[in-house]
Design a binder for these strands. Structure first.
Length: 289
DNA sequence: AATGTTTTCAACCGCACAGGA
DNA sequence: ATCCTGTGCGGTTGAAAACAT
């Protein structure tokens, strides 16, 4: 599953490593260490660039590198850490002895994300990651694209076009930006748009119950519409095939669903909907009474 | 068995950052 | 303060392997 070996225009070998190259690199690093990756290939007798050598050593040859399938514990940890750290693969790898950032990254893209694609959240919306702050222009662009995605996803009619959704966003959302660091604070933001919620009152305790799939979709659509002026944040929990998503999303209503994995129809019950935590600004917004 | 499609994952690439000159 | 170099990180690629038709 690797590019076949070839020599580039600079005379450097690229592509798959041969056993002979592996042995040379392993022997050299174990004896002399990697004091300078750029010069190392010259002294080790390899026609490779330093970066290629480093990558091969770190991801494959380094003693202790664990290969093979991830255990359930490792998978859970990756999901949990990704929820906390985002795409900080090296930071995640630091918590999984023997696993490299590259392997975890591959694992995430090929297993976790594929799994999500097969079991998408009803109104999953791409939102901001907590990785880095966005400029105002970027934020507006993303808001617009989120709104478009939502309206496309939900087949909203003209009255809920992307422009009107954005206007709603701009007029109702405000964030407590004073808490950009430290612990989360609370701010009261009337982010809710009852006009989009219809007559469903989600604020009453105990009003949520397990719903058949079709009914869930109806409720989901209502709540999605209600939160579509921001992004939606979902937290999925299940024994095996759904994972936590919320920390990578910001804005919108915080909704927690639990998948009933015992049911073949995958019942999803709404557990709580009282506000949302914005990991970007580290602020908890809750619905005004 | 042959062919097409999807999945996997090692390796590449470009960028950012740190440290030294 | 600026430039240069080395290193590390995250996103992406692409061919082999696995799977489906």
């Amino acid at each position: 599953m690797v590019r076949p070996p070839y020599v580039d225009s600079n005379g450097l070998k690229k592509g798959a490593w041969s056993d002979d190259e592996d042995n040379k690199l392993r022997a050299y690093v174990q004896r002399y260490g990697h004091w300078n990756w750029r010069l190392l290939p010259k002294y080790a007798g390899l026609a490779r660039c330093g970066k290629s050598c480093r990558l091969r050593w770190v991801n494959y040859l380094k003693p202790g590198v664990k290969r093979g399938n991830f255990t359930k514990e490792e998978e859970d940890l990756v999901v949990k850490l990704h929820a906390q750290l985002g795409n900080k693969w090296s930071a995640i790898a630091a918590n999984l002895p023997g696993r490299t950032d590259n392997e975890i990254k591959n694992f995430w893209h090929t297993r976790i994300e594929k799994r999500r694609d097969r079991n998408p959240a009803p109104n999953k919306v791409k939102g901001h990651t907590a990785d880095k702050p966005l400029t105002k222009a970027q934020t507006l662009n993303e808001e617009k694209s989120s709104a478009v995605t939502l309206s496309e996803t939900l087949n909203l009619n003209e009255s809920a076009s992307s422009d009107s959704l954005i206007n709603l966003q701009n007029s109702t959302l405000s964030f407590d930006t004073n808490s950009s660091s430290g612990s989360a604070t609370e701010s009261q933001v009337d982010f809710w748009a009852d006009t989009f919620l219809g007559n469903t009152d989600y604020s009453q305790e105990g009003c949520f119950q397990s719903l058949p799939e079709e009914e869930f979709l109806i409720h989901s659509e209502l709540s999605s519409s209600g939160s579509s002026y921001a992004a939606s944040a979902f937290q999925w929990n299940a024994d095996d095939d759904l994972s936590i998503m919320s920390p990578n999303f910001w804005g919108g209503s915080f909704v927690s669903y639990t998948s009933n994995s015992e049911s073949e129809t995958s019942y999803i019950s709404l557990q709580e909907m009282g506000g949302f935590y914005d990991p970007f600004f580290e602020v908890f917004h809750h619905r005004l009474p």
